[in-house]
Structure formats: structure tokens, C-alpha cells
Computed example of a mutant assay.
Amino acid sequence: MAKRTFGTVDELPSGRFRARYRAPDGRRHAKVFSTKADAWAWLATQQTDLLRKTWRAPVASRRTVGDYAEDYLSRNDLRSSTRVLYAGLWRHHLAEAWADVPVDEVTSAAVRSWHTKAGRSTGPTALAQSYRLLRAVLNVAVGDEVIASNPCRLRAAGTPKASRPSRALTAAEALQLAERLGHDRRTARYRALLLVLAFGGLRFGEATALRRSDVLPGGRIRVERSVRRVGSGWVVGDPKTDAGHRIVTLPAAVAAVLEEHLEKHVTAAPDALLFSTSSGGYLARSNWNSTFRRAATAIGLPAVRPHELRHTGATLAAATGATTKELMRRLGHSSPAAALLYQHAADNRDAAIARALDDMLGAISELSNDDPERDD
């Protein structure tokens, strides 16, 4: 068999085959195929075009990361708030480095260099979000078979590195915080919010988008929207995931506080916000965070973040013995992965399991002792 001298074909981890060759424009061009034969056939056509001087550089390979980002941000399936978030991330953290770079020239080394440099001036959350956006944009190029694989391969770069691991409050600590808010006239309207977040496990945007009509009989609340501040305005849309549309049943004690809250702090209109500012407007996350931290400091809690109220709600629910599917439904998770994080359910749950096993063993022992056929 004659040895092939034009281009190369190599097998990818996916089992597909990448054909590559260097063209007169000085660049290495590539395309991915399902079979090795198809890859070699494509190389043969490229070589023929070169020999006949009819070869032209593939238009797709000249598209820049900026071109792909523009297409990605104009997708119809992006929520308006998500589109605004992504546009800001692109503009502030990605455009300068990547807008004019052809997608087929993006390397893993270049991504690593950008990530290291950006990390010196960008917060962990924004950096992780920016990396995920870059990866998503380049995934489109992979799907178009313009590049063989995504060069965004940094381990855990898409997950923000918190200054410390999240921790769940105990039920007692959550009640203490709620009582602290309730004893201050200026913050009493937020007592019920804290309890709903801590024992219902709602996201902050879901809770602050609730209306009077979302409170249902039997201590249930209907979650069907979320709100977030974008620029100088508020954007109301669907919850974070499709599974976010749900009904959450609150503990009876929390439901009673919520009923009291309705009487004191919510107007009779069905569309009145359930948790609002004193003027009836949406509650800004920054204002809530300040209120929460002051209350936590006042009762001497160790360092705790406002978002950990949702972590608390998830962990307390897991501690009751809820299954993964039950946790997914209660928390509005669309995949088991997130719900499974809470099924460790803390050390005190493990002790409770041990006590239950002791009871089981004790019951078996008693039955054995009472066996009438047992020899004395």
C-alpha cells in the first residue's frame, strides 16, 4: 500500500477521526469524520484543489471567537436576564482577549494563560462564569466541526472557589436569626422570609418574586417565577430550571408565621409581593445580605453567608430521610447531582441512623428472647 504523504489522520478519544493538513495560508486546517476512510477522502479532495490551484481557505475556520460569541448571545432559548449576564461577562472579561482570535487558533495553553491573568483582577464567581461562557461558545465550534475538541480543559475552572466550604445552619440557629429579625421593628417584615428560605429551601430570586396569590391552603407556596436585578431595572422570568416550577409545603410552624406576615405586611391585592421593601417594591439582594449579616453578628453566629439559607433548607430536608427524587422536587433541581450533595445530611443525622439501628437490633433481641421454641 502506498504511503500517504499529504496530511494526517488521527483517532480522537470519541472514536471519530480528525484529518489535518497545512495549507498555503500557513495555517493547519482540520475536519472531523465518523470513519477513517472519510477523513482520508477529504484530504484527497483538499490536495486535488491545491494541485489545481482552486483551493480556498474554509470560511468557517476564519470565524473568530467573537463571531461565535455573537451568535451564542443571540440564541432564542436564552432568558433575557441570562442574556444580559452573558453579555456583561463577554464585554468585561472575555472580549478584549478573545474577540479577534480565530476559533481554530485557540489553544489550551492560551486559555490557561488568560485564566491565570484574569484571576488576578476578577472575583471567583465572575471568573468561573466567564470561563463557562467561553467553553460554551467554543462548544458550538466543536459542534460545527471547525475545531476537533474544546480547548477549555482547566480542571474545576467552571466552579467558583469559595473562601470556605458552605455550611448549613442548625434549625435552632435559623430560628434564632428569625427571632432577631422579628424583634426589630425595621426588620420584622423579613422574619418570615428567613424562615421560608431556611425551611423551604427556595432560591432568593424565587422567594422575592412570590405574590400573595402564591400562598396556598395547607402551608403550601407555589413557585413559578424568579426575579433578579439587571442594570437599573428588575427582570421577572421563569425559575432557574424547568424543575423550578413547583409547590413547596412549609412546616406548620413556618406556615403560621407566614399567615401572620400576610396580615401585617402584605396588602390584600392578589399580585402584592409576599416579601417586599417597606414601599412594596422588590427586595434587593444587597439590602437583604446586609440585613442578614447584621442579625447573624448580633446573635454571635460564626461566619455565615446568606445563600447558605438554601443550603440549610436542603440539608434539613435531607436529614429527614428524603429520597433524592424528593429533594430534587422540593429544591427545584433538574438533575440528581445537586440533590446528592445534601444527602450527607451532617454528623447528627448519622448518629440518628445509628440510634435507629440500635432500636432495630433491640427489637430483634426481644423477639428472640420471647421465642416459645427457644431452649431454656
Rank of each mutant, 00 (worst) to 15 (best):
R132Y: 02
S149W: 01
A110F: 05
A118F: 01
A156P: 00
P151V: 09
L177I: 11
A162D: 09
P151F: 06
S108T: 15
R167L: 09
A157T: 09
K161A: 10
A156Q: 12
S121V: 12
A174I: 04
A136M: 07
R164C: 09
V106Q: 01
Q129A: 11
V103K: 01
R164Q: 15
R112G: 12
G123Q: 06
E145V: 14
T170G: 15
K117F: 05
T159R: 05
Q129K: 11
T159I: 11
T116I: 11
S149P: 11
L169M: 13
D144T: 15
R120L: 13
E145I: 10
L138Y: 02
L177D: 08
A118L: 05
R132W: 01
P124W: 11
T125C: 04
A136I: 03
V137T: 10
E173F: 03
R120S: 15
G158Q: 10
K161P: 09
V111R: 00
R132I: 03
V146D: 00
P160C: 06
L138A: 02
C152S: 06
A174E: 06
L169A: 10
V146G: 05
R112Y: 14
Y131R: 00
Y131G: 02
V142D: 04
R167Y: 09
V142H: 06
A172T: 14
P102E: 08
N150Y: 07
G119Y: 04
V103T: 05
P124G: 10
T122D: 02
R132H: 04
T159W: 01
R155I: 13
N150F: 07
L127Q: 00
A110E: 12
R112N: 10
R155Q: 14
P151W: 03
T170A: 14
N150W: 06
L175D: 15
P102S: 13
Y131H: 03
E105F: 09
R135W: 04
R167Q: 14
T159G: 06
T159K: 08
A171L: 05
L169R: 05
V146T: 15
A156N: 15
S108I: 06
T159C: 01
K161H: 14
A168G: 13
P151E: 05
V137G: 01
A141D: 03
R153V: 14
V111Q: 00
A109F: 07
T122G: 02
T122N: 03
V106E: 01
N139S: 13
G123C: 06
Q176T: 04
V146P: 02
L169Q: 09
L138I: 10
V137S: 02
